[in-house]
C-alpha cells in the first residue's frame, strides 16, 4: 500500500519532533499550569469563576478548557516552526528536490500539528478529569470541541508559518515567538475570565485573541452550555483561520528554497 507523500512527511515530522523538549513544551508546561496554577488560584478565588451561561465553577474547572485550548497554540507553534527549522537546517531544500510537491510539505506540517493538538488535548482532558472536573459529553459538545481544536491549530500553524516564512534570522524568529507566546497565552480567556473590572484595553486584547475563541468554545462545549455565542466564536475562528491560511500560503509560495 502506497502512503501518500504528505503522510510520509507527516510521519517524518512526528519522528523528528518527538523529543523531551517537545514533550515538556506540549505536555509538561500545561500540566504544571493545570495543577500548580489551578490549585494556587483556586485557593484565592474561593467564590468560583462566573461562566457566560451565568453559572459559577471552581477555578480549576474554569482553567481546564483553557489548558486544552493551549494545546492548539503549542501544536501550531511546533508545526509552523518546522518550516523555520527545515529552512535553517537545509531539509526544506532537500525535501523540495525529493519525491514531494510543495503542497505535500505544507500538508505534512498542518497534519502533524493537528495530530499533536488532538493527542495533547486528549491527555490534558484526562488530567483534568483527575482533578476532578465534570464534563458535558454530547455529540454536539464533542464535535464543537474537535472543531475548535482542529481549526484553532490550523490557525496557529498558519500564523507560525507566516513568521517562519518572513524571519530572516533565528534570533528574530525566537524573539517573535516568545513575545507571541506570552502575549497570546496570558492576554486570553484561557487563564482568566473577562469581567467588568478588566481594563478596557486588556478586554479588547483578550477578546480579539484567537486563543480566547478556542477557550470559549471549549468551555461552552465541555463545562457550560452551547449557545449562539459559541457558534459566533466558531465562525470568527474559522474566518480568521482562513485569512491567516491564505496569507501563509502566499508567503510559503514565495519562499525561495534555493539561493
Amino acid at each position: 500500500m502506497r502512503i501518500p507523500a504528505f503522510m510520509r512527511l507527516t510521519i517524518r515530522n512526528i519522528i523528528v519532533n518527538i523529543d523531551i523538549g517537545t514533550l515538556i513544551f506540549m505536555l509538561g508546561l500545561p500540566t504544571l499550569y493545570l495543577f500548580v496554577m489551578g490549585f494556587m488560584f483556586q485557593g484565592i478565588v474561593t467564590t468560583g469563576v462566573p461562566l457566560s451561561s451565568g453559572s459559577t465553577v471552581s477555578y480549576t474547572t474554569f482553567l481546564a478548557p483553557g489548558i486544552i485550548a493551549l494545546e492548539s497554540f503549542t501544536a501550531g507553534n511546533i508545526g509552523g516552526g518546522m518550516l523555520w527549522s527545515d529552512r535553517r537546517w537545509g531539509m526544506f531544500e532537500r525535501i523540495m528536490v525529493g519525491p514531494f510537491r510543495r503542497i505535500d510539505y505544507l500538508l505534512g506540517i498542518i497534519t502533524v500539528s493537528i495530530i499533536f493538538a488532538l493527542v495533547g488535548s486528549l491527555i490534558m482532558l484526562g488530567f483534568a478529569l483527575l482533578i476532578p472536573i465534570s464534563v458535558v459529553v454530547t455529540p454536539e459538545s464533542i464535535l464543537l470541541s474537535i472543531f475548535a481544536i482542529v481549526v484553532g491549530t490550523m490557525l496557529f500553524s498558519s500564523l507560525f508559518l507566516i513568521i517562519s516564512g518572513l524571519s530572516k534570522s533565528m534570533q528574530a524568529y525566537n524573539t517573535i515567538t516568545i513575545v507571541l507566546f506570552f502575549m497570546l497565552d496570558f492576554a486570553s480567556t484561557a487563564f482568566y475570565p473577562i469581567t467588568k473590572n478588566t481594563p478596557l484595553w486588556l478586554r479588547t486584547l483578550s477578546g480579539s485573541n484567537p486563543l480566547s475563541f478556542i477557550a470559549n468554545i471549549l468551555r461552552d462545549s465541555l463545562i457550560s452550555s452551547i449557545s449562539s455565542s459559541t457558534f459566533f466564536y466558531a465562525g470568527i475562528l474559522l474566518i480568521v483561520m482562513l485569512v491567516l491560511l491564505g496569507i501563509s500560503l502566499r508567503i510559503y509560495k514565495s519562499i525561495r528554497s534555493g539561493i
Partner: peptide, 24 residues
C-alpha cells in the same frame, strides 16, 4: 547532496530510516 548541511534533528540511525520511509 547539497553543498550546505541538510539533516533532521534526530539520531543518525533515524536519519537513515526516515530516508527509507520518505522514499518508499
Amino acid at each position: 547532496v547539497q553543498q550546505e548541511e541538510a539533516f533532521d534533528f534526530t539520531t543518525v540511525d533515524n536519519n537513515f530510516k526516515l530516508y527509507g520511509m520518505m522514499w518508499e
